[in-house]
Amino acid sequence: MTDLLVARLRAAGCVFAEDEAALLRAEAGGVRLEDLVVRRVAGEPLESVLGWVELDGMRLRVGPGCFVPRRRTLLLARAAIAASPSTLVELCCGVAPVAALVARARPGVRVHASDLDPVPLELARANLAGHDGAVHRDLFAALPPSLRGQIDVLAANAPYVPTEQIAMMPPEARVHEPAHALDGGRDGLDLHRRVAAEAPRWLRPGGVLLIETSVRQAPGTAATCAAAGLDPEILRDEELDATAVRAVLPAGASPETAATR
């Protein structure tokens, strides 16, 4: 017998229609299932329709109007976990996937997350529930002054798609995710420059800045970090198809000297 739900999803362009049908059925029943299917067939990301995304075995809450964390962001999370931080701040956090994964892996870590958009911040609070976490608006603006010069790891999945390339992104992202979560400016590095310039004022000596980027943009991201007085290296994970820059504040640096750079 033909599975009509699978057929509808396949006709809408869903490559893994059978898997998606099973997930939608597990999340809903009766009339509500039809509501979910209509949203998915209209092109809304499966994760925001379901209300969750799974990363490294952890379910994180997501929803309409939010940037859906991609699997490649695991590179940031794993690099942050490897640094064994006692204090971590996730900038441009969206629903705070890095902070949540680090908090799970490193009990006792203090995590802070910040984002311009209040919509994903509500979900970030839910994803950090039960951990020693706090959520703030914008980049560094609302962070407690007591964190200045004390942060072990700054992690940022700041938007890095060049403006002219937004039109070439899949509709699931281009239509259903907020533009400010995707658009990195003319060369995709606008937010990377802002984050790198401020990072030395907030990191402790020996602290680490982690920025997700692309293969093409990684040299530019690394250069912005070097210009801010950090020591950068490019990280690449082929299995995740992920690229990031890891930049360390030299041990002899201090917030006072960094602020004068």
Rank of each mutant, 00 (worst) to 15 (best):
A244N: 07
M58T: 15
V208K: 01
H112A: 14
R10D: 13
P97I: 07
P170T: 08
A83Y: 03
L123W: 04
G149D: 09
A99V: 02
T213E: 08
R204P: 01
A83S: 10
A79K: 01
R104Y: 10
C225K: 05
V111W: 06
A103L: 01
W52D: 04
V135H: 11
V215L: 14
V109E: 05
C93P: 12
E172A: 15
L24S: 09
E122R: 13
L88D: 01
D3T: 03
Y160E: 00
G51Y: 00
A142I: 00
A134H: 10
N157I: 00
G94R: 01
V248Q: 02
R8P: 11
A28H: 05
V119C: 03
G206P: 07
V195M: 08
L182H: 11
T2M: 09
R72H: 14
R70F: 06
E256S: 11
H112S: 11
D241G: 14
A156Y: 05
C225R: 03
L91H: 01
G149W: 10
P118Y: 09
L189Q: 06
G57Q: 04
W202I: 04
A11V: 05
P200W: 10
G63I: 03
E27R: 15
E44K: 06
E198C: 11
P255C: 07
R110V: 12
